[in-house]
Write a protein that binds this DNA or RNA. Sequence first.
DNA 1: CATGAATGAGTCTTCATTCAT
DNA 2: AATGAATGAAGACTCATTCAT
Lengths: 204, 204, 204, 204
Amino acid sequence: MPKVTETHKMLRRQAILTAAEEVFLGKGYQLATVDDIAVRSGLSVGALYRYFGSKSEILLTLMQERLGRTPELLERLTSDAGGPWEQISRCVDIFVLALRVRHPSTGRLLLVAWGEALQDRIVRDGLMLRFQGVVDYLRDVVERGIQSGEFRAEADAKVLASLLMCLADGVTLYWAANTPELELHPIRATVMAMVRSYLSPQES
Amino acid sequence: MPKVTETHKMLRRQAILTAAEEVFLGKGYQLATVDDIAVRSGLSVGALYRYFGSKSEILLTLMQERLGRTPELLERLTSDAGGPWEQISRCVDIFVLALRVRHPSTGRLLLVAWGEALQDRIVRDGLMLRFQGVVDYLRDVVERGIQSGEFRAEADAKVLASLLMCLADGVTLYWAANTPELELHPIRATVMAMVRSYLSPQES
Amino acid sequence: MPKVTETHKMLRRQAILTAAEEVFLGKGYQLATVDDIAVRSGLSVGALYRYFGSKSEILLTLMQERLGRTPELLERLTSDAGGPWEQISRCVDIFVLALRVRHPSTGRLLLVAWGEALQDRIVRDGLMLRFQGVVDYLRDVVERGIQSGEFRAEADAKVLASLLMCLADGVTLYWAANTPELELHPIRATVMAMVRSYLSPQES
Amino acid sequence: MPKVTETHKMLRRQAILTAAEEVFLGKGYQLATVDDIAVRSGLSVGALYRYFGSKSEILLTLMQERLGRTPELLERLTSDAGGPWEQISRCVDIFVLALRVRHPSTGRLLLVAWGEALQDRIVRDGLMLRFQGVVDYLRDVVERGIQSGEFRAEADAKVLASLLMCLADGVTLYWAANTPELELHPIRATVMAMVRSYLSPQES
DNA sequence: CATGAATGAGTCTTCATTCAT
DNA sequence: AATGAATGAAGACTCATTCAT
């Protein structure tokens, strides 16, 4: 009965990851103890170590599963868009809505990851990979818009892409840190306004 | 001769802060030990504790002295600008140039601070305060531009301000983390282009 | 069919012992894990515990089966010797050849056993028992040689016996620890020369 | 006042080593905890780690200070001997008397060291070094005796030396393990008798 | 005031052993 | 009988902080 076992293992893994996420979001990675995670996931420490080789491996996995998929998520959710404009719009929406409604923990997890980035090279690499992935996708979207003539030809796709990525994560961090007066909806509107004015072909 | 002593104290404090900054930038706050800082500042641990009550207090002070002054720095460096447009342009410049040429460590320190934000409430509050300060200033600049008619009336000053702040810190973080392919000059140019197209009063 | 089961059990036991021996010789008793042994013997940990009550019991059994039989082995292999001189000679041979050609692992196992002797009383007792057995046999050989007049009458059989035993194990240990420049053949020759000169009845 | 501090440090070091030795002799290296050593030496664990980098470093140092000096000890105590015969005799004496009267713990420490030899390469190397040192010295003694004509010319100095070393450690181990019926004095006498009969030039 | 030795609570991790399936 | 997941006690080591000198 390998199926039951496999499923079981998967469930355990997920339970641990969920527990770890909760603990990390609560007190940060460094202050979270392996015991905390074990207790919250209803396992013993020893059992936990059957699924993850170390505390940092848990964070890494969490990053891969929760943050690393951002690029493909973007791609999936915007592939059926009508055109570049709608694609861009949706991307911005996703960053905003994903933060608020669907995966409120993602933003906080990003905060945790940044917290470790300086001390842990692999965590940093994970963040860089995510950056690359998102930027590549955004760049692609913009370039196609330029080629189709819907976006202004002079726009710098690559730079705009990394700029949007930085903006998104900047917003995410401040939002995750509970910055008062950081309202996501107006921000989204303004970002779109700026992007629109920047990318619209000059009338002449 | 209390004055000499005062000066002496100040020098010591600064030596500690500088040493701490170097250590923090090197291995992050958590991995840095008080001993590391003591050794690098040429003091004993005991002496160090006469100047700062705890390790985290050092980080706090460092943040206040190195990051907390960003708002007034912005203000000072842009006060003699010709008008709102130049002010905005200079602000963006400062974020970019400050990162690269003048205070390359500031960006990395921000990374350190964000790393602790989740686990340390006071650090987080420090970041929020800085956010508020910068946003308030930027908002003021934009609002004055609107009032003088140089900026589009419909622009949302407050949102634009926080948006720019988030963008600046997002860029800083990725830059401080050595993200490859993150070129500051093109980014600055594009940001300005976007801001310009967004803030320019509609023709016609 | 209890007989088949018995055989089966025996095979399992032997498989475990062989596996354990290999593991112990490789990394020592303390560093070897029960898992190591289980994996190498092709069993699960649980199954292994049906054959041996504890990790140390495995070592004990190993000692009994591999080391504890030294006395009877000596006896068996030297019983058909022509006389005391040949018996003594063969005993020395056995210690030397057994180490090199036939059971190279025995020496290393002795090393493992000595490693545990201090921390495990039962292991220590096992070594003592083996010591007693070998000494008793050697003593018997010498005494018979004395009685038959072939050995010098003043020789102290008991002391010579324990001395040879100590020498044998001393050599074994250093050999098992891969001491360079420890050549067994010359050692055997010299030991025999010493024994001969010591045991030979004084001429004149 | 560096002198006081240095002395103090030395005393602490020795206190730790003594405590460690006692603990190791009592329960063996593996079963001894760092806490055990700390408590017995009257220090805290943290303090202990200021003097030794790891538990195994303590054992290593102990070996170097207690066992590693065996060669020079031999040399020192036998240098003023009248001739090769007395030198050999004294060497054997030292191994015997050192065990019983003067440094009863040395023998047990050797047992501890052998216990770790299989699992710790450095410990093993330490034992090998000691072996080499002692063997080199004994060999020298024998060779000089041969050259002076007091020892039989055909004697194999190198082999005899390693043989005696093995014998000495074999005896030490069994003695340290409290083997009943292992009387050192008779053994010493018999060893000397064997050596004498082996090394004496053949009368003809 | 300075020193740096000492403290000791707290962390991650391992592994012999058990037991539900 | 077999499996191997789960247990949890225990251990080595770190480091912010204190305090006698």
